[in-house]
């Protein structure tokens, strides 16, 4: 199998703090991988190391077949990197931003390329508008288009949908899957579980350590979690009551529903038994969701770290 990204032992320290610790990532060509982890877990640092914006303290491997430690020039030329914060020039118009990118990469038929891109974006009528005047969703679409202008083989997207409305988010992901279908490899970091579920595989990192990796279903299975939902008027009040009871690992709300999760079925059943008789409560077992697993992994990593 050909890997677009294949790195081992990726490590980055800032002073004494270890931001990324010995992380292995191997993304096959054409797949979409999700990068999950709480804020400050090292997602951005990892992505920056992959495209040569930060020097790795340790680790080796390749990105698009180039040594990521020494050939960042070559990697940059075939990679599109979308930063977490909008990083195009707000005092340039949409067209000028695209033209700048086209010039930097020395792309042929610049005018037609920019015209076509604007057309595809549906921004022809607003091409003279300053990028800073665009709304969040449009900024993100423009940024993606600019990152794609030089037809990269690898897309690194750092929380591309933060602060974007649900409809724009959906459109964005449709676009990502289209790109992936065309053979482009995508590594995308996100906080949204629904987005993670649309990835071929996810990598979960916490405090710089990779704590889980695999397809969504496998990660959920591997977690060994047993989850019960509690519905009903009194469910809300129950959360604090159940927390810390035998067998209960954590309690979390999903909308109005309460998820109670643990590893030991017998203990969990015993704890929940007294509430079964309450007519105002509906208790039933469910498949743990990715978010349950996410919380569990985060909790466990936090305990391990402290």
């Amino acid at each position: 199998m050909n890997y677009a990204i294949n790195v081992k032992g990726l490590t980055k320290r800032f002073g004494k703090k270890v931001a990324v610790n010995n992380v292995d990532i191997a993304v096959p060509e054409g797949e979409v991988w999700g990068f999950l982890g709480p804020n400050g877990s090292g997602k951005t640092t990892t992505i920056r190391m992959l495209c040569g914006l930060l020097k790795a303290d340790a680790g080796e491997g390749t990105c698009l077949g180039y040594d990521f430690r020494t050939q960042s020039e070559e990697i940059k030329r075939e990679t599109g990197y979308m930063t977490q914060k909008f990083s195009f020039w707000e005092d340039l118009s949409i067209r000028e931003n695209l033209e700048f990118v086209a010039r930097v990469y020395g792309l042929p038929k610049k005018r037609k390329l920019v015209d076509d891109t604007l057309e595809k974006l549906g921004l022809v009528s607003r091409q003279k508008q300053l990028a800073g005047e665009l709304s969040g969703g449009w900024k993100q679409r423009m940024a993606l288009a600019a990152c794609m202008l030089h037809s990269p083989r690898l897309l690194l997207l750092d929380e591309p949908t933060a602060g974007v409305d649900p409809k724009a988010r959906r459109d964005f992901w449709t676009e990502i899957h289209k790109l992936s279908g065309a053979g482009i490899t995508v590594l995308v970091s996100t906080h949204y579980m629904d987005e993670a579920e649309r990835c071929d595989q996810i990598v979960f990192i916490s405090y710089g350590d990779k704590v889980a990796q695999g397809p969504v279903m496998k990660i959920i299975e591997d977690s060994g979690l047993i989850t019960f939902t509690i519905e009903g008027e009194r469910a809300r009040a129950l959360a604090d009551e159940l927390r810390g009871k035998p067998g209960v690992e954590f309690v979390a709300f999903f909308g109005a529903m309460l998820h109670v999760s643990g590893y030991d079925r017998a203990l969990l059943e015993a704890t929940l038994a007294p509430y079964r008789g309450d007519p105002a409560l509906t208790i039933s077992e469910t498949h743990p969701s990715l978010e349950d697993v996410f919380i569990q992994l985060q909790d466990r990593a936090a305990r391990g770290a402290s």
């Binding site: 914006l53 990197y81 930063t83 195009f88 020039w89 990118v101």
Partner: peptide
């Protein structure tokens, strides 16, 4: 925007 400038060649 510096990050973007550096990410390009």
């Amino acid at each position: 925007t510096y990050e973007n400038l550096l990410a390009m060649p």
